[in-house]
């Protein structure tokens, strides 16, 4: 491998359609693969896509839709659900000397705790960032990466970090390309041998159907009848705002309000 080429790893999980509950490619992980594929196509960085979990027929169907995005190979660390995948993944990422790990933020099934990137980063002693939408620049020589992070209200923040690094992709990232059946058939799923005896057991918690969360009611903690009466009859004190009839003054008032809200 050339020294200035990065070793990019995408970690993918098996998603779940929210209505039919069928296995599918996970939305965020697909975005991560899209980002990885773009890196590989534009700068010839080397991309490997890895999944850790039991390889059932359902899983194979979901994984093939990642292959359908144009991957030649998808590696699978076959680990039963009773065992913790973190240490196996840590060992694998370390063994292939990956510079950049791209993954989704949160799985679509299972307990969706979104802890894996943080646990991996801790085990590998490398930085991790969440909510990434775009890679702006990668400086191979200085091992620097510039990223764009999604913030609430559609805002974006630029972050610079040092490689190696784990980045978690937000739903605001570029939508993934379509999965083609022909490409899915031509790509192959390669199992990677894992030493299962070294893995920690993990308690599989039963999944219960989500109960409806109660809606918050407006609590009235009135102690006397007069307070209750007032709470029941008082209206919100938005008794109409300021009225301005002159266009010039009105424009000035709007301008001042926008200044006050720090929007101009």
């Amino acid at each position: 491998m050339l020294p200035n080429k990065l070793n990019v790893t995408c970690l993918v999980s098996i998603g779940m359609h929210p209505l039919s509950r069928r296995a599918r490619r996970a939305e965020q992980d697909a975005r991560a693969v899209e980002l990885g594929l773009n890196l590989a196509e534009s700068s010839q960085h080397q991309l490997s896509v890895v999944h850790a979990g039991e390889l059932t027929s359902e899983a194979e169907f979901a994984l093939s839709s990642y292959l359908g995005m144009g991957l030649d190979e998808l590696k699978v660390l076959s680990i039963p659900p009773q065992l913790d995948i973190t240490s196996a993944l840590t060992d694998y990422v370390r063994s292939i000397k990956s510079n950049l790990v791209i993954m989704g933020q949160q799985t679509e099934q299972g307990d969706s705790s979104a802890m894996l990137p943080y646990l991996l980063a801790q085990a590998l002693s490398i930085p991790v960032v969440r909510g990434i939408t775009e890679i702006i620049d990668i400086d191979n020589t200085r091992q620097h990466i510039t990223l764009l992070q999604a913030l609430p209200r559609g805002q974006r923040r630029q972050i610079t970090g040092s490689l190696p690094m784990i980045i978690c992709i937000d739903m605001a990232a570029k939508a993934p390309r379509q999965s083609a059946v022909g490409k899915a058939l031509s790509g192959k799923i390669t199992p990677v041998s894992v030493n299962l005896t070294g893995l920690d057991p993990v308690a599989v918690k039963p999944m219960l159907t989500a109960t409806v969360r109660p809606k918050r009611l407006k609590l009235i903690k009135a102690k006397t009848a007069a307070e209750r009466f007032k709470a029941a009859t008082a209206k919100a004190t938005n008794s109409g705002g300021k009225l301005v009839y002159d266009p010039q003054q009105g424009a000035q008032a709007i301008y001042d309000l926008l200044k006050q809200e720090k929007l101009l």
């Binding site: 779940m16 929210p18 679509e108 299972g110 307990d111 969706s112 219960l208 159907t209 989500a210 109960t211």
Partner: peptide, 8 residues
């Protein structure tokens, strides 16, 4: 858990 469809 799982996109708000399950509880644990």
């Amino acid at each position: 858990a799982s996109q708000g469809l399950s509880d644990i």
